[in-house]
Amino acid sequence: MTFLRPTGNWDGTRLAHEGFIFSTDSEVVERVVPFVLEGFARGEPVLVVAGERVRSLLARHLGTDLGRLATFAAAETWWRGGHDTLLAYDRDLRDLRARAPSWRLAAEPVWLAREDGREWSRFEAVANRCLDAMPYYSLCLHDAQRLPTAVLTAVARSHPLTWAGAAPAPQPAYEDPIGFLRAVQPPWTGRPGGAVVDVVTAPVQARRAMSAALPGDRRARLGDVVLATHEIVVNALRGSAFAELATWTDGEAFVVEVTDAGPGLPDETLGYVPPDPVDGPRGMWLAWSLADDAAVRTGPAGTAVRLYFRR
């Protein structure tokens, strides 16, 4: 008989992030139940946020131990768009950190099955960087019967650990978060010839330019476009005397491109990093949350950011 180590060599001082893809009920039970019981044995808060299938399996197999879970919640009601979902999650993590030295979580992001929930893979990827200091084991559950192949591939690319049968093991398909983001952002095609181009030296000029550029049938997005563009221009003008603004429409999307000749972004993942409640940058997080999609190209010769706004 194999000796199970549900969290392997995890020492409880940093984030461990495992992607577990299941098909059958017994796979769920054999992975999650020992994981939960080990947490109880170690005195850690154990949280479960999952879909109906996983919840009912756990309820059946944990019996009265179910009541020892610090959280046992339905994942179906958690989705509020990527940014707001992560912000709420980040607050929960900060609360946990204030009251426990380490904890563990079994979570099933059921919204990955939705078209508008796919972006969650980007947050999962960036979490490996920005949540690294959080002392918890995140066991992410994914139902192979519900999720398309592209999502399951993204799970492997965004989770550094996978289940090897008796203990977690490094996931061979795991990618560096920046590489993952670059691969999944909208492809960086050439700027179309009909793009409207402006040069600005102050953020207020960018706001006026956006008000003028947004087509009449898209005015419902004006506030989003102006505020998101403003914040990116503010960043651009920190390291560059001027910024170039280009706008065009690409099918359903109104595209804003902000280009600068500054020294490059210190961290191009910040659009997916929940801001610190008190200090630190917020502009990219805000712009990314207002836009429907975003893409970045950055290096020592400058930065270009594209924001996409659908109708």
């Binding site: 953020p203 505020l227 403003h230 914040e231 503010v234 917020r282 502009g283 805000l286």
Partner: peptide, 8 residues
């Protein structure tokens, strides 16, 4: 009419 992150 407008407030940015710095204003917040």
């Amino acid at each position: 009419d407008f407030l940015d992150v710095a204003g917040g």
